[in-house]
Measured scan of single mutants.
Amino acid sequence: KVLVLALYDYQEKSPREVTMKKGDILTLLNSTNKDWWKVEVNGRQGFVPAAYVKVL
């Protein structure tokens, strides 16, 4: 399983997205889209901007 680090806070803007806080460790589920990556955080799955996270 691939983990990513949240570099910035992100507030979800649609039901398909998830909120994350800077420093959160998320599970990367899909990174085929260069702009939006699907992650799991706190038991929820959704998209975050790829530029806001870094693969650990």
Results as ranks from 00 to 15, higher is better:
Arg16Gly: 15
Pro15Asp: 13
Leu5Ile: 14
Leu28Gln: 01
Val2His: 14
Lys38Arg: 13
Ala6Asn: 01
Leu26Gln: 01
Asp24Lys: 03
Pro49Asp: 02
Asp35Leu: 10
Gly23Lys: 02
Ser31Asn: 15
Leu3His: 12
Leu56Gln: 08
Leu29Thr: 06
Lys54Tyr: 12
Thr32Gln: 14
Asp24Glu: 15
Pro49Asn: 02
Thr19Pro: 07
Lys54Trp: 12
Asp35Gly: 08
Lys54Pro: 01
Glu40Pro: 00
Arg44Phe: 07
Thr32Ile: 12
Leu3Lys: 10
Pro49Gly: 01
Ala6Met: 02
Val39Leu: 04
Pro49Phe: 03
Arg16Gln: 14
Gly23Val: 01
Trp36Asp: 02
Leu56Asn: 04
Asp9Asn: 09
Ala50Gln: 07
Gly23Tyr: 05
Leu7Pro: 01
Ser31Trp: 11
Ala51Glu: 09
Lys1Leu: 15
Gly23Ile: 01
Asp35Ala: 10
Ala50Asn: 03
Leu5Asp: 01
Lys54Cys: 13
Leu5Trp: 05
Gly46Met: 05
Asp35Lys: 11
Leu7Phe: 04
Val53Tyr: 00
Val53Ala: 03
Asn30Gly: 08
Ile25Arg: 06
Trp36Cys: 05
Val2Cys: 11
Leu28Ile: 05
Thr19Tyr: 04
Trp37Gly: 00
Val4Gly: 12
Trp36Phe: 09
Lys1Asp: 15
Val41Gln: 11
Trp37Pro: 02
Pro49Cys: 02
Met20Tyr: 01
Lys54Ile: 14
Thr27Lys: 08
Gln45Gly: 08
Thr19Ala: 07
Phe47Ala: 03
Arg44Gln: 11
Ala6Tyr: 01
Pro15Phe: 09
Asn42Asp: 14
Lys13Cys: 13
Lys38His: 14
Leu29Met: 10
Ile25Ser: 03
Lys21Ala: 10
Asn42Tyr: 09
Trp36Tyr: 10
Leu56Asp: 04
Leu28Trp: 02
Ala6Ile: 02
Ala50Pro: 08
Thr27Leu: 11
Val53Pro: 00
Val55Leu: 11
Glu17Cys: 06
Asn33Trp: 08
Arg16Leu: 14
Glu17Gly: 10
Val55Asn: 06
Lys21Gln: 11
Ile25Gly: 02
Trp36Leu: 04
Thr27Cys: 08
Lys22Phe: 06
Lys38Asn: 08
Pro49Trp: 03
Asp9Pro: 07
Lys22Val: 11
Gln11Val: 14
Thr27Tyr: 11
Asp9Cys: 04
Trp37Lys: 02
Thr19Ser: 14
Val53Asp: 00
Gly23Arg: 02
Arg44Val: 13
Asn30Arg: 06
Gln45Ala: 13
Gly46Phe: 07
Ser14Trp: 07
Ala51Asn: 14
Leu7Ser: 03
Gly46Cys: 03
Leu29Cys: 06
Met20Asn: 00
Leu56Cys: 07
Thr32Arg: 10
Asp35Asn: 08
Ala51Arg: 12
Ala51Cys: 10
Phe47Tyr: 13
Tyr52Lys: 08
Pro15Gln: 11
Lys13Arg: 15
Asp24Cys: 05
Arg16Glu: 14
Gly23Pro: 00
Arg16His: 14
Ala6Leu: 02
Val2Met: 13
Pro15Leu: 11
Lys22Thr: 09
Ala50His: 04
Gly43Val: 04
Met20Gly: 00
Met20Leu: 10
Ser14Cys: 07
Gln11His: 14
Lys13Ile: 11
Asp24Tyr: 05
Leu26Gly: 12
Asp24Met: 10
Tyr52Thr: 08
Tyr52Ala: 09
Ile25Gln: 05
Ser14Asp: 13
Gly46Lys: 02
Val4His: 03
Trp36Lys: 03
Gly23Asn: 07
Gly43Phe: 08
Leu26Asn: 02
Lys22His: 07
Trp37Gln: 02
Met20Glu: 00
Val2Tyr: 11
Pro49Leu: 03
Tyr10Gln: 01
Glu12Val: 06
Val41Pro: 00
Lys54Phe: 11
Gln45Trp: 07
Gln11Leu: 13
Ile25Asn: 03
Leu28Ala: 02
Gly43Arg: 05
Ala51Ser: 09
Val4Thr: 03
Glu40Tyr: 08
Lys13Asp: 07
Asp35Phe: 13
Thr32Trp: 11
Phe47Gln: 04
Val2Gly: 12
Asn33Arg: 08
Leu26Glu: 00
Lys34Glu: 09
Asp9Ala: 07
Thr32Tyr: 13
Val48Tyr: 01
Phe47Thr: 03
Lys1Gly: 09
Phe47Asn: 04
Asp35Trp: 13
Ser31Asp: 14
Leu26Val: 07
Val18Trp: 04
Glu17Ser: 07
Val4Trp: 04
Leu56Ser: 05
Val55Ile: 14
Leu3Glu: 09
Leu28Glu: 01
Tyr52Pro: 00
Glu40Thr: 07
Glu12Cys: 09
Ala51Gln: 13
Gly23Met: 04
Asn42Gln: 09
Val48Asp: 00
Val41Arg: 12
Asp9His: 06
Val18Glu: 01
Val39Gly: 00
Leu7Asn: 03
Phe47Lys: 03
Phe47Pro: 00
Leu28Val: 13
Glu40Val: 07
Val55Thr: 10
Phe47Trp: 14
Ala50Val: 07
Val39Tyr: 00
Gln11Ile: 15
Tyr8Thr: 10
Val53Ser: 01
Gly23Phe: 05
Lys34Leu: 09
Glu40Lys: 06
Thr32Cys: 10
Val53Lys: 00
Leu7Val: 08
Leu28Pro: 01
Leu3Ala: 06
Leu56Met: 09
Gly43Trp: 05
Asn30Thr: 09
Trp37Ile: 06
Leu56Phe: 07
Asp9Arg: 03
Val41Lys: 13
Gln11Cys: 08
Leu5His: 05
Lys1Cys: 07
Lys13Thr: 15
Lys38Glu: 15
Glu17Asn: 06
Val18Ala: 06
Ser14Tyr: 07
Trp36Glu: 05
Leu28Arg: 02
Ile25His: 06
Gly43Glu: 07
Tyr52Ser: 10
Asp35Pro: 03
Val39Lys: 00
Leu26Trp: 02
Leu29Asp: 01
Asp24Leu: 04
Asp35Arg: 07
Thr27Ser: 10
Lys13Phe: 06
Gln11Trp: 15
Ala50Lys: 07
Leu5Tyr: 13
Lys34Thr: 11
Lys13Leu: 15
Arg16Ala: 14
Val18Phe: 09
Leu28Met: 05
Ala51Leu: 12
Leu29Lys: 04
Val41Glu: 05
Thr27Asn: 08
Ala51Pro: 09
Tyr52Asn: 07
Tyr8Asn: 11
Leu26Arg: 01
Arg44Cys: 06
Lys34Trp: 07
Val53Met: 06
Val41Asn: 08
Tyr52Asp: 05
Leu26Met: 14
Gly46Glu: 01
Val18Tyr: 04
Gly23His: 06
Lys13Tyr: 05
Gly43Gln: 09
Gly46Leu: 04
Ser14His: 11
Ser31Gln: 09
Gly23Cys: 07
Thr19His: 04
Pro15Ile: 09
Gly43His: 09
Asp24Phe: 04
Leu3Gly: 03
Lys38Asp: 05
Leu56Pro: 04
Trp36Pro: 00
Val53His: 00
Leu28Thr: 01
Val18Met: 12
Lys13Gln: 15
Pro15Ala: 14
Ser31Val: 09
Glu40Gln: 10
Leu26Thr: 01
Val39Met: 02
Lys38Gly: 06
Tyr8Val: 14
Lys1Ala: 15
Val55Pro: 10
Gly46Ile: 04
Tyr10Pro: 00
Val39Glu: 00
Gly46Ala: 03
Val4Leu: 14
Asp24Ala: 08
Thr32Glu: 15
Val55Gln: 08
Lys1Glu: 14
Leu29His: 06
Ala50Trp: 01
Gly43Thr: 08
Tyr8Leu: 13
Val48Gly: 00
Leu3Asp: 05
Lys34Ser: 14
Lys22Ile: 07
Gln11Asp: 15
Asp9Thr: 06
Lys1Trp: 07
Pro49Lys: 04
Asn30Val: 11
Arg44Tyr: 07
Lys21Pro: 01
Ala50Phe: 02
Val53Trp: 01
Gly43Lys: 08
Asn30Glu: 13
Asn42Trp: 09
Glu40Asp: 12
Lys34Asn: 13
Tyr52His: 09
Trp36Ile: 03
Asn33Val: 06
Gly43Ser: 10
Ala50Tyr: 02
Leu26Pro: 02
Tyr8Asp: 12
Glu40Ala: 09
Val18Lys: 02
Tyr10Gly: 00
Leu7Gly: 03
